[in-house]
Nucleic acid binder design. Structure first.
Length: 341
DNA sequence: TACCCGTGGAA
DNA sequence: TTTCCAAGGGT
C-alpha cells in the first residue's frame, strides 16, 4: 500500500506553490494557512505572505497589525497571531531556525499534533504521523475504522494506523500522498474508487461500505448573533475600533458594535439614526446579523469600552487593517451612504 | 471534554 | 437554497 501511494503521488500530485522546495518556513506557513481552508483559497494568500514576510526573521520583526492585514479574509485569525508569536519564539529561543522534530515544534504556538507532524515529516524527513480530515477519511475506509469524528477510540486507531504507515522511505511524501489522495480521489461523497491506487487494500470498497464510512460529523445548530453597528463619520473619516485579541474576530478592526442601537448610544454618546442596512453572514457556528446605523456624536472618542484601541481613518488608511469579511461588507454600505449626501 | 474560532467551494 | 466541510488549535 505504501509503495502504491508513493508511486501514485509521484505521477499525479498537483503542482502547488509550496511543493518542490524544502524551506521549512514556507512549508510551515502553508500548513497553517491550509488548516480548515481549501487549497484554492490559500494559494494567493500564500504567495503574498511569502513575498511580504520571506523568512522567519522577517515575520518575527513585523508588526502584528501587518500580519493580520495580510491575513484579512482568510478566517480563523488566531492562526495569524500564533504564527507571529511562534516566529518570535523561534528567533528568540532557536536562533531563527525551526526545531527539527515534531516534539520540538509541538511546543510552539499554533503547532498541534497535526501541524507538528506535517512540518517534521515534510521539511525534516521525520517519520512523524499525521491525521487530518483527508487522512482520517482515507484510513477510515481502507481499514474500515468505525466511530464518529471526535470519538476517542476512533482517533487513537487512526493515529496508530498513520504511525504504522509513515515508517519507511520518504515519510513526508507518504503523508502528502495520503492527504492528496483524500483531497482528489477519496472524496467525502462519490469517491473515485476506479482511479484509486489503493483500492485493492480498501476494506470499505470490498464490503460495499464506502458511502457509510466515515460517518458525517454531528453538527449543532448555528446560533444567531445580531449586533448593531455604528457608522460614525467626521469629514472623510470613519471611527474604527480594534477588538480584544481573544474570541470572535480577535484583534481585528471594525465599526463600533453593540448588542442593540441603545447600546451604541451608550458606547458612543449622541443619537442613533434610521437603520441604513442589514448584513447577514453565515459562519460555521453562527448566523451573524449586522444592523447598520448612522450615529452622530460630539464626544471625543479616543478610546472605547471593550475595545483595545480606536482610530479615525480615511478609506485609504483603512485598506491595510486586519478586518473580517463581514465588516468589509458593512463598510461598503457605510462609504456609499456617505457619498450620497 | 466540549466548545469556540471564518470563509468559500461544491453539490 | 441549504448543507457539508476543508492540510486544526486553543481553552
Amino acid at each position: 500500500m505504501r509503495a502504491a501511494l508513493l508511486r501514485w503521488f509521484d505521477l499525479h500530485k498537483r503542482d502547488l506553490p509550496w511543493r518542490g522546495q524544502r524551506d521549512p518556513y514556507a512549508i510551515w506557513v502553508s500548513e497553517i494557512m491550509l488548516q480548515q481552508t481549501q487549497v484554492s483559497t490559500v494559494i494567493p494568500y500564500y504567495r503574498r505572505f511569502l513575498k511580504r514576510f520571506p523568512t522567519v526573521r522577517a515575520l518575527s520583526a513585523a508588526a502584528l497589525a501587518d500580519v493580520l492585514g495580510q491575513w484579512k479574509g482568510l478566517g480563523y485569525y488566531s492562526r495569524a497571531r500564533n504564527l507571529h508569536r511562534a516566529a518570535q519564539a523561534i528567533v528568540a529561543e532557536h536562533g531563527g531556525e525551526l526545531p527539527r522534530t515534531a516534539a520540538g515544534l509541538r511546543e510552539l504556538p499554533g503547532f498541534g499534533r497535526y501541524t507538528s507532524g506535517a512540518v517534521a515529516s515534510i521539511a525534516f524527513g521525520e517519520e512523524a504521523p499525521i491525521v487530518d480530515g483527508n487522512v482520517a477519511r482515507v484510513l477510515s475506509r481502507v481499514r474500515a475504522i468505525e466511530g464518529l469524528p471526535g470519538d476517542k477510540a476512533r482517533e487513537q486507531r487512526l493515529w496508530a494506523e498513520a504511525a504504522e504507515l509513515v515508517k519507511g522511505e520518504r515519510p513526508g511524501t507518504l503523508n502528502e500522498a495520503l492527504m492528496e489522495l483524500g483531497a482528489t480521489v477519496c472524496l467525502p461523497k462519490a469517491p473515485l474508487c476506479l482511479l484509486c491506487p489503493v483500492s485493492a487494500h480498501c476494506v470499505a470498497l470490498k464490503t460495499g461500505r464506502v458511502d457509510e464510512l466515515p460517518p458525517a460529523k454531528v453538527r449543532t445548530a448555528r446560533k444567531r448573533l445580531e449586533l448593531a453597528v455604528a457608522v460614525c463619520r467626521r469629514r472623510d473619516r470613519l471611527l474604527l475600533a480594534r477588538r480584544p485579541d481573544a474570541g470572535l474576530f480577535g484583534g481585528l478592526w471594525e465599526l463600533p458594535t453593540a448588542p442593540t442601537p441603545d447600546g451604541l448610544a451608550k458606547l458612543l454618546g449622541g443619537t442613533v439614526g434610521e437603520r441604513l442596512a442589514t448584513i447577514e453572514r453565515t459562519l460555521t457556528h453562527r448566523d451573524l446579523v449586522l444592523d447598520v446605523f448612522p450615529l452622530e456624536t460630539r464626544k471625543k472618542l479616543d478610546r472605547l469600552d471593550g475595545y483595545t484601541e480606536c482610530r479615525w481613518v480615511t478609506k485609504a488608511e483603512l485598506e491595510p487593517l486586519g478586518m473580517a469579511t463581514a465588516m468589509q461588507a458593512v463598510l461598503g454600505h457605510a462609504w456609499s451612504e456617505g457619498t450620497r449626501g
